[in-house]
Amino acid sequence: MEKPEKLMVDGKRLDGRGPEELRPLKIQAGVLKRADGSAYIEMGNNKVLAAVYGPRELHPRHLQQPDTAVLRCKYNMAPFSVDDRKRPGPDRRSVEISKVIREAFEPVVFTKLYPRSGIDVFMEVLQADAGTRTAAINAAAVALADAGIPMRDLVSAVSVGKVEGTIVLDLIKEEDQYGTTDMPVAMLPRKKVITLLQMDGHLTQDEFERALALAMRGCEQIYEAQKAALKAKYATKPEEE
């Protein structure tokens, strides 16, 4: 991938969006038959599939907790999801992302209701274009709700960043790579509590506050799409003949 000459022209981005616009968003709940809950999301060119299994008996047994369920998250990128083939299997990056995603969901899921059991969340990135961890979180939240797992709230996530001096929402690959800053944010849309915040690059305090406010507005839009996806699956189907 070559560095484009300019990432922003006349306030428009490479893909024609304004700085505070999300990429096209598509979420579908309950796409996998054999999973207890599942979801598929497309955020621009990101395509992520999430599957939830459980609560179920946890193996290996020594991981069981006598008083709560154990939440296990696995983020994985398909070898064909990026331009240069990714070596399959877990690596430093995906282990870290799995961990931060788990920590983003732990305050939300009522794990105390299911002692000694395990809840498994698998997120598979089929196509990547920056912000895959946020897309994975959005899909996993819908999949958890689809599995009927009790939760305090959904989790919505989006990335913000700074590109050529402008604070922008939902970065694409070029902006992520050649921009100044990339900051993924996940939050509980109802209470506006942040459960994940990472930053690559730097922002001044003022820029950070503006970026965070922008991320919150982005999350609200994503939350609406997540809600719509769940309601679409369970809306009363027309009576069959």
Partner: peptide, 9 residues
């Protein structure tokens, strides 16, 4: 009514 997690009842 159909509700989702976190919805105010």
């Amino acid at each position: 009514e159909l509700v989702i997690p976190g919805q105010l009842l």
